[in-house]
Design a protein around this nucleic acid. Structure first.
Length: 515
RNA sequence: GGGCGCAUAGCUCAGCCGGUAGAGCAGCGGACUUUUAAUCCGUUGGUCCCAGGUUCGAACCCUGGUGCGCCUACCA
């Protein structure tokens, strides 16, 4: 028995048996954890060209992967080995395998072990292309048994906390994250083809801005200064447009110190891009392509599942509806931005307007969010937001009170948000000042400081520019038909397990400098 | 933040009206040379989430707590 066992608080008698086997391996002078192994084939390579391999004894193959459930018959056995490409069945036969390999199987092999298998390919009686093992190398013992083979791991908490187990036993999970990776890769390729430049801007910011949200605060010891984790990269990216990067994008994390739900994780991934010369309308055309093409490349289709039915999002253009039209269409509420609060309340009829609303505009936005959003299932652009809720957006040329802005809704979620960027420094300064005033009056989502450097940048001149933000997690939810954002984030934020809950930030080295 | 629900073996789950812990899989021992949840025989394994309370007696009832899920509200 390994002297260390049990070294974790979370252990059981099952682990003990596995550690005994590891000790037995060592007692024979064998390395339980060899450093490397040269596989020559992937499972998918063999299965994708099986006729080239079947019954060709000269074509020896060698694969490496994790052992699945073992079906043992005394002097023979079947099991699958899973590598990064998929899985292939292994047939261990006392007559065909070398003596050491058979003994390794018989004495030491468990479900979940990592093995290297060398052998030749054949087809079994039941028709499955398989490898008949000539030798078997144990590359890593599984010391902690996998969940049950039939039901797998279903407990959502365990799946999110121990994603590694989830990935091993639930193939759909691997597929979801493969799709996510492909979506992002195709998006990058698409943007690069359109001559966008990918950049990385600060996530730790002395001043935060670019959205309405509450930030996380952290601290730099040497500089002895508080920093905010960014809620958006917007203000830095537009500085780059000023600097001449006329097509620029960033795909990375934002952090918002707000609620957690099936649609919200405190850190989430956003694509933000800016294109000089464009406006909100050209950006809407672009968004359609930007969301359709990666979906086609990543999944091979252009359909997504909405309310249980397949919807082809490649049918363009997507409807573009002003926020006021949407209110009238879905709720029969006829309002406009010039109305007084009492007029809005009267027009709302039976639709409740809470007393906390700050004014008529707030009331209209509230009506939209509570009564219209849940109707927006198929991709729909909502346009013409009021200037007051769009402090970084330019007004429409023909209506100074309305921002040249859109939000894209799919499956009742806001998936993208874009607008013509305000590039008038004096007006931007005034809008910031309004935010500071709102903050002073208690709006915790309003930014309480004017970013003077950003206004200074605008003074150097930014060309007419349109900007866009796309929630990558939500886009992935749509592409993979995932009901929760936690299903598309590998390690969603969870409260610590009890054993970790005791540790303070100081224990973990986060204390301030002693000097 | 509000509401509803869940927590029992490594995993998936039973556990009736409160009477003292069960199954399948996994594990361990045995039989078995073409299986696909292999089969057959035997068998180990429990902080019933935690802390109190009620009771002769609590997995079960009550109170408080912890974690998670779903709905709802806000942010994307």
């Amino acid at each position: 028995m390994s002297q260390q066992f049990p070294f974790l608080s979370d252990h059981s008698h099952l682990h003990e048996a596995r550690y005994r086997k590891i000790d037995a391996l060592r007692a024979e002078g064998r390395n339980a954890y060899p450093a490397s192994f040269d596989a020559t084939h992937l499972a998918a390579t063999i299965l994708g060209a099986e006729e080239e391999y079947i019954d060709k004894p000269e074509r020896v193959v060698c694969v490496m992967g994790r052992v699945g459930p073992i079906r043992a018959f005394g002097k023979s056995a079947f099991f699958h080995v899973t590598d990064r490409s998929g899985k292939i069945q292994i047939f261990v036969n006392a007559k065909a395998i070398d003596a050491e390999g058979f003994r390794t199987y018989k004495e030491f092999l468990d479900t979940g072990d990592i093995v290297g298998v060398t052998g030749v390919v054949f087809r079994t009686k039941s028709g499955e292309t398989s490898i008949e093992a000539r030798s078997l190398a144990l590359l890593c013992k599984n010391a902690r048994p996998l969940p049950e083979k039939w039901h797998g791991l279903t407990d959502k908490e365990a799946r999110y906390r121990q994603r590694y187990v989830d990935l091993i036993v639930n193939p759909d999970v691997l597929e979801t994250f493969r799709t996510r990776s492909r979506l992002v890769a195709s998006m990058r390729r698409w943007l690069d083809e359109q001559e966008f430049l990918e950049v990385e801007t600060p996530m730790m910011q002395p001043l935060y801005g670019g959205a309405s949200a509450r930030p996380f605060v952290t601290h730099h010891n040497t500089l002895d200064m508080d920093l905010f984790l960014r809620i958006a990269p917007e203000l830095y990216l537009k500085r780059l447009v000023v600097g001449g990067m006329h097509r620029v994008y960033e795909i990375n994390r934002n952090f918002r110190n707000e609620g957690i739900s099936t649609q919200h994780n405190p850190e989430f991934t956003m694509l933000e891009l800016y294109a000089a010369g464009w406006n909100a309308a050209t950006m809407m055309d672009f968004v359609e392509e930007l969301l359709i093409e990666p979906l086609r490349l990543a999944t091979g289709r252009t359909t997504i599942v909405l309310d249980g039915r397949e919807v082809d999002i490649a049918r363009r253009p997507w409807p573009r509806v002003t926020i006021l039209e949407a209110l009238e269409r879905h709720c029969g509420i006829k309002v406009d931005w010039k109305m007084s609060l009492s007029d809005v309340k009267a027009a709302a009829g039976g639709h409740h307007v809470p007393d906390e609303v700050h004014g008529p505009i707030d009331a209209i936005i509230h009506l939209f969010e509570t009564h219209v959003e849940h109707h927006l299932v198929e991709p729909t652009f909502i346009t013409e937001f009021p200037k007051a809720v769009s402090p970084l957006a330019k007004s429409k040329d023909d209506d100074p009170e309305v921002a040249d802005r859109f939000e894209l809704y799919v499956n009742r979620m806001e998936v993208a948000n874009g607008f013509s960027e305000l590039n008038d420094p004096a007006e931007q300064f005034a809008r910031f000042a309004e935010q500071v005033e709102r903050r002073r009056q208690g709006d915790l989502e309003a930014v309480g400081t004017i970013d003077e450097d950003y206004v200074r940048a605008l003074e150097f001149g930014m060309p007419p520019t349109a900007g866009l933000g796309v929630g990558i997690d939500r886009y992935t939810m749509l592409a993979t038909a995932s009901p929760s954002i936690r299903d598309v984030i590998l390690f969603p934020l969870m409260r610590p397990e009890s054993s970790a809950a005791e540790a303070t930030p100081e224990d973990q080295g986060a204390g301030k400098d002693e000097s």
